[in-house]
């Protein structure tokens, strides 16, 4: 089995008494497009900064493609952290050249390629001070791409972009993941974007990872147990039978009279079999699916970022 592209184990960072990132475990496989979600102040950006070595971690380890060396591991990483900062008096191209110089990888052709990918070829020689917020964001992505990293860590990559720009960046990232095989780890406050872009999602709340899985698993509720809506000819008999079935927990009575049940350690087929054995005449057994937003809201107590 190949090394994970990004592997965080027990990542912890405290600010005084407050624990911003709490024993966070993450595993991003090569080729994944991983969405990192969480409400405001959940610890997303702090976790990203810890992973990039921008801030010290109080505990835990981060390895990138199996390399735990704090400097060497960054050779394979391109990063965009929050609002990208530039020397405004330099041109876009000169800013990228500066990054190339410090990275020790990439050249003028690479800079041209990156500018082209984000649609800034025509403005590369203009001073960054004249760029709009969206153009600065694109330039930030271009900077993350120079040197052809294997892993992109992007904090809110579509911040400040108009709908067209957001779609272009989304298409760009999709293309990079599909054609170039890039692994992408991105945090975003746009759940729909994560749903469209990411194959795996992690949700962080109060510094802890509260759910992780594929988007399908999360919306189906399988990351923290499957949920089904059950209907029976005799609802009272159904309720009584569920009490005796280990791994099935009644959650609530739905408006249509069905009972919502969470299954942990027991499959839908087995539940049906146990109910039939108990003499319950099951007339409906419907797996529950949620939108990513519903899942997010259920798992996090705060507002959406």
């Amino acid at each position: 089995m190949s090394e994970p592209a990004l592997h965080a184990i027990g990542l912890t960072r405290r600010f005084g008494a407050r624990v911003a990132v709490d024993t966070l475990d993450l595993r991003v496989e090569p080729g994944d497009t991983y969405g990192f979600l969480g409400p405001n102040g959940a610890g997303k950006t702090t976790a990203i900064r810890c992973m990039l070595g921008l801030i010290r971690r109080d505990a835990g380890q981060v390895s990138i493609f199996g390399d735990a060396h704090p400097v060497r591991q960054r050779r394979q990483v391109g990063a965009l952290v929050e609002t990208p900062a530039f020397h405004d008096w330099m041109t876009g191209r000169a800013n990228l050249a500066r990054s190339v110089a410090f990275a020790g990888q990439g050249d003028a052709q690479e800079i041209d390629r990156s500018l082209g990918l984000v649609g800034l070829s025509g403005r590369g020689d203009d001073r960054v001070g004249t760029y709009s917020l969206g153009m600065r964001q694109r330039l930030g992505i271009a900077r993350a791409l120079v040197g052809r990293p294997q892993l992109l860590i992007l904090d809110e990559p579509t911040n400040g972009l108009d709908p067209r720009g957001m779609k272009e960046v989304r298409d760009l990232l999709k293309g990079l993941a599909k054609q170039d095989g890039l692994t992408i780890f991105l945090s975003s406050h746009l759940l729909s974007e994560v749903e469209l872009l990411c194959n795996r999602v992690g949700i962080i709340e109060k510094g802890k990872l509260v759910a992780e899985g594929t988007v399908q698993e999360l919306v189906a509720g399988r990351a923290e147990g499957t949920e089904v809506d059950l209907g029976a000819v005799d609802p009272t008999q159904l309720t009584a039978a569920l009490v005796d079935i280990e791994g099935a927990t009644s959650l609530s009575l739905q408006p249509n009279g069905r009972t919502r049940v969470r299954l942990e350690g027991i499959g839908i087929a087995e539940l049906n079999q146990r109910l039939v054995q108990a003499g319950v005449a099951v007339d409906a057994l419907v797996p529950v699916t949620h939108t990513l937003e519903e899942t997010f809201l259920r798992l996090t107590s705060s507002e959406i970022t």
Binding site: V81, P84, A85, F86, R98, F102
Partner: peptide
């Protein structure tokens, strides 16, 4: 202050060399 130092700090070089 302008956060441009951050952009070189994420590069694969020891910070003292910066």
């Amino acid at each position: 202050k302008e956060n441009t130092l951050r952009e070189v700090m994420v590069r694969p070089v020891p910070r003292w060399t910066i």
